[in-house]
């Protein structure tokens, strides 16, 4: 007995070493390959959160699909929201494959979402009050998503890396779609200009939070060390946020817009943007489904789940 256990442990250890060697060498891990539990669990959490965020992320924009102010914009936003659902579908499939050995399915993902065990991204708990917000989501939220997703394009888990490649290609169109809406408003009437300034003011804090806390000291936990160790991502949350500033602050300012943070500036010596931290206690509340729209959006998914139960039952017959 004692012997078997120790052999088992040795094998486990050897497996682990072999696994780490593989990812250090830049090899891709596939679904059927051996992987440490921590790796599997980290991926399941990350990818199901990413997938469900794509789906929940369709909801704030959906509010603006019928209201889009021209036929062209209607078609554009419809295409975008459809893509987001498609991303959700693609990612949930990747997550499902990882969950299979645990005996779990998509049903678990949806139930965990409804029970609050599975979180969705903080930005999608926010209110999309105006058409300006619909434009800003495409421009800056998708812009931010491109930055975080590009950071994982070379993820050690092959199926995720491949899904991200497809997703990132589409995200570029989304950012262009958003930018086109914003440009039209920026070149438009005073009311239209005021509309985007108002959107930036209201969304700024959520955009800062988008990349997550700088380290565990702000929110208690942070998965970034684990994901970096396993080569799922390369850059830290703060590095990503800085990349976002570098890319977008000049663009925002060039449109004649202002940032709702007067202290924001690039510190040449530190080589970093200095900015006012968002209220991270608010962030914790938001991702616990206590954000401005958390309950309402979850309610939509819940309604879909219960109202269509007869359909799912009929399909399973």
């Amino acid at each position: 007995m004692v012997n078997t256990v120790s052999i088992g442990q040795l094998t486990e250890e050897a497996n682990y070493d072999r696994f780490m060697e593989r990812i250090e060498a830049g090899e891709k891990i596939e679904t059927e390959d051996w992987m440490p539990d921590e790796y599997r669990m980290t991926l399941i959490k990350l990818i199901s959160m990413h997938g469900i965020s794509e789906i929940m992320g369709a909801l704030p924009e959906k509010e603006w699909v019928p209201k889009a102010p021209s036929l062209r914009r209607k078609l554009g936003i419809m295409a975008k929201v459809q893509d987001e659902m498609g991303h959700g579908q693609l990612l949930l499939r990747v997550a499902e494959d990882l969950m299979k050995p645990l005996g779990k399915t998509r049903e678990n993902i949806i139930r965990d979402l409804l029970s609050g065990d599975l979180k969705f991204h903080n930005v999608f708990h926010m209110e999309a009050k105006t058409w300006g917000d619909a434009g800003l989501i495409g421009w800056l939220v998708d812009g931010a998503a491109i930055i975080t997703q590009t950071n994982m394009l070379d993820a050690s888990y092959g199926p995720y890396a491949r899904a991200l490649k497809r997703i990132c290609a589409e995200e570029v169109f989304h950012a262009q779609h958003g930018e086109a809406i914003i440009m039209a408003l920026a070149e438009g009437t005073d009311e239209q200009k005021a509309m985007i300034q108002d959107s930036i003011n209201r969304w700024w804090e959520a955009l800062l939070m988008f990349f997550g806390p700088g380290d565990a000291s702000t929110t208690g936990t942070s998965k970034q060390d684990t994901t970096i160790k396993y080569k799922i991502r390369t850059k830290t949350n703060e590095e990503l946020r800085q990349d976002f500033f570098t890319k977008y602050i000049p663009r925002v300012l060039s449109l004649g817009l202002t940032l709702p943070d007067e202290t924001m500036h690039f510190d040449q010596d530190a080589g970093m943007w200095q900015y006012l931290q968002p209220d991270w206690s608010k962030f914790k509340q938001i991702i616990k489904n206590n954000g401005p729209k958390s309950k309402e959006r979850l309610r939509l998914r819940e309604i879909s789940y219960t109202n269509n139960k007869w359909v799912i039952d009929a399909l399973q017959n």
Partner: peptide, 27 residues
């Protein structure tokens, strides 16, 4: 498009929104 996000499953959401988009394109 009112159905978006509310269809019986995610695959259907994608398919239905594609149809609605085509239909708007025809309009």
């Amino acid at each position: 498009s009112e159905w978006l996000g509310l269809a019986p499953h995610i695959e259907e959401d994608v398919a239905f929104s594609s149809i609605s988009q085509d239909t708007m394109g025809h309009a």
